[in-house]
Design a binder for these strands. Structure first.
Lengths: 209, 209
DNA sequence: GGCCCTATTGGACAAGTGCGCAATAGGGGT
DNA sequence: ACCCCTATTGCGCACTTGTCCAATAGGGCC
């Protein structure tokens, strides 16, 4: 009954961040404590601070990893699209598929915690920017190929993203809307925003039938 | 130096909630403690629990009061409108005027805290519903008088509100957008949603010139 | 095989939390 | 003027938090 198996610094750091992600997923960002992460790892709490400067840093890194994974998933899904319209449809598909996911809840907690945790705020802002950037690149492609219309691509991307976020908020925070409504309405909003024919972005339910 | 001036239970309760609101405004919901509220009042911490069952209840009541005041302000502003379109424009005016306000930040914190505080969650859901209801009543009026078009008033209200929320999120949480952009884009979105002529909801900047 | 480096331990620490309770004091009703 | 009711006090309690540090132990290099 001695110490936990000795690991290389890289492995251990990795394990710590992974454990933090798991606890975050289960209990939320604000309720994730050093001791919880240590318990998840099966090690002592002192070990955490041997690899991490502060709890703020750890939470920021765990959030960045989790949210970054989500972004990477969507990015990968989008890449398989034939043209811009197809890629935009895949963007919504991928977003909607995070159905049983805590994606949006995570963002909510990050925004609120950001007031007290500078590192977490930096991570959140950077990832938000990356999502906008992904969406803008799809739209830019569509405009250049003449399949989408927009005289301000950046702005259009913000509007599409904001509608999606606002609708998701109602699902996660209030339970006032269903995922299906968010899915249909956000696609319809994007179609109008980008001068697409209504329905071309196809709701999941419609396309899977 | 004896006890604080004796007050009637009603006055004292009122004073406690008011003090809690002030602390909430200054430090945020999550960072509002019993001792902070007592210090704001200039009384002892024990007094708080003599009037309030739990911190959850107190925070919920303080949030409900603060957010309820915001809603009442907008409701009052809206009532002075001549017709539905005018009232909708006033709705956006009132929302935009809360410029130096902590309105949206308060909602953010409420959503995140709601996970741990049932009473706060109830208050937040109820007020959210009230905002939607106010917006829906304006739209219903417009549709009935033929100045607005919508085949699903409830849904339209959710979409207008969600776009506004999503855009505000970018201002408050990330600083990625400006209030002016939110104002212009949310009005334009509502005009499209309700079949209004572009510009009739008039941005604040345009109308004040 | 032994030694040293460092990963790992486990608890101390100070600061903070919500809540409860015995003691106090002040004002209104008689 | 007195007395009782209760608003108010001020501290204690049990618990949690992040952070730190001396002690320990295990594995790789000579």
């Amino acid at each position: 009954m001695g110490a936990m198996a000795r690991m290389s610094p890289q492995e251990r750091r990795e394990a710590i961040v992974t454990a933090a992600m798991a606890v975050m997923e289960r209990q939320g960002i604000a309720a994730t404590t050093v001791r919880d992460v240590a318990a998840e790892l099966g090690t002592s709490s002192g070990l955490i601070h041997h690899y991490v400067d502060s709890m703020d840093d750890l939470l920021a890194e765990a959030f960045a990893r989790a949210a970054g994974d989500d972004l990477a998933t969507t990015r990968a899904a989008v890449e398989s699209g034939q043209d811009a319209v197809d890629r935009l449809a895949l963007f919504f598909d991928s977003y909607a598929r995070a159905d049983d996911d805590f994606g949006m809840q995570r963002w909510l907690e990050a925004w609120a915690e950001a007031a007290r945790r500078p590192a977490l705020q930096r991570a959140s802002r950077q990832l938000n920017e990356a999502w906008h950037s992904l969406l803008a690149s799809i739209i830019r492609d569509g405009v250049e190929h003449g399949t989408m219309r927009s005289d301000d691509i950046e702005a259009a991307a913000w509007r599409v993203l904001s509608l999606l976020d606002g609708l998701m908020l109602q699902v996660v925070a209030h339970g006032a809307l269903t995922r299906a409504q968010v899915d249909a309405w956000s696609r319809a909003g994007a179609e109008r925003e980008l001068g697409l024919r209504p329905g071309v972005l196809g709701a999941v339910s419609a396309r899977s039938m």
